[in-house]
């Protein structure tokens, strides 16, 4: 992704018409994204400066920065920021560790590997809604799988989705379960680029599995892991369905991420303008992460190029 302007060729008048044709190819998609993503986004930012209610979505008057200042002064807002960061961090680390381990385990050819890979892909491939329905039942306090196993093993039971101590952990378990396979698939593809001779040489030199992973495999898949970390981060900040449908932001706001609170503000409190102002902060969060990623990425590629 480059933001720098493309070097434009000096064009002879005859080529003009052909250049115009080039824009005809890109115009539909561009206009489309402008209409259905950029315009709503700008409108969202604007809504954040008004006092619009859901009951009258096109009414509402300009009130300046009031929504933003009242958000910045509210404990609930900072709680949702903290929750989002915590949810994102744990999801990114959890999916990267689980996904990479699964990829490493599947990286050797053995009978039935394709079958197992397919099986491990199931959580990611299934619709989120279906996964949510299953997890609600698994977490059911009286008849759910978790508490039944807990009773059998004698470690007792918990209100997985209702106890403030477990709410976020339960949502995280469901999330990591749902998402780790895509990390596995991407890392598995990256592992194909690790030269087998290198690993063989390390083995002959007597390197153990861990040091061969650190010395040979990890440097090769590092660029991929960085991309995956970015994807996982952006997706986690955006994620809505799993959290909203499992806990609705509760218990006691413990899973009330920015995105969940946007939706609750808009469609439960009918307060479109505060929701929009929250959305601006949510977008800012994604944007900071993306910019940070590209700074790290350019620095790393420069380092790799110079070494």
């Amino acid at each position: 992704m480059t933001l720098s302007a493309e070097v434009t060729e000096r064009v002879a008048p005859k080529k003009r018409r052909r250049d115009l044709a080039r824009y005809l190819y890109i115009a539909p998609a561009t206009l489309y994204v402008l209409m259905f993503a950029v315009v709503p986004m700008v409108r969202g930012v604007w809504l954040g400066f008004t006092d619009t209610k859901l009951t009258n979505p096109s009414g509402g008057r300009f009130i300046g920065l009031d929504n933003y200042t009242s958000l910045l002064g509210s404990e609930a807002f900072w709680n949702s920021i903290r929750t989002t960061i915590l949810y994102t961090l744990v999801t990114v680390i959890g999916t990267l560790v689980l996904g990479t381990s699964a990829a490493l385990a599947l990286n050797r050819a053995f009978a039935g590997r394709a079958l197992l890979r397919g099986l491990l892909t199931f959580p990611y491939a299934m619709p989120t809604i279906a996964a949510v329905l299953v997890f609600i039942w698994i977490y059911n306090p009286s008849s759910g799988l978790f508490n039944r196993v807990g009773r059998v093993l004698g470690i007792g039971e918990a209100g997985w989705l209702t106890d403030p101590e477990y709410g976020l952990a339960s949502v995280l378990i469901a999330t990591i379960w749902k998402v780790f396979p895509i990390v596995m698939l991407i890392v598995l593809a990256a592992l194909q680029s690790v030269p087998e001779e290198l690993r063989e040489a390390a083995r002959v030199d007597g390197a153990d599995a861990l040091s061969s992973f650190r010395g040979i495999v990890l440097p090769h898949i590092m660029p991929t892991l960085r991309i995956v970390a970015l994807l996982m981060t952006i997706w986690s900040i955006r994620r809505f369905e799993i959290i909203y449908l499992l806990t609705g932001g509760g218990p006691v706001e413990t899973t009330n991420t920015v995105v969940v609170s946007i939706y609750r503000r808009a469609f439960s409190d009918l307060d479109l303008s505060t929701a929009a102002a929250l959305g601006v902060f949510g977008l800012l969060l994604s944007f900071i992460v993306t910019v940070a990623f590209f700074i790290i990425e350019t620095r790393e590629t420069r380092k790799e190029a110079s070494s």
Binding site: P57, I237, R238, V259, I262, L272, G279, S286, T290
Partner: peptide, 16 residues
């Protein structure tokens, strides 16, 4: 568009 939360877009889109 891939980092835009749908939950953010859904609010103004609803108005539109």
């Amino acid at each position: 568009t891939q980092m835009l939360p749908e939950a953010l877009i859904v609010v103004p889109l609803f108005a539109i």
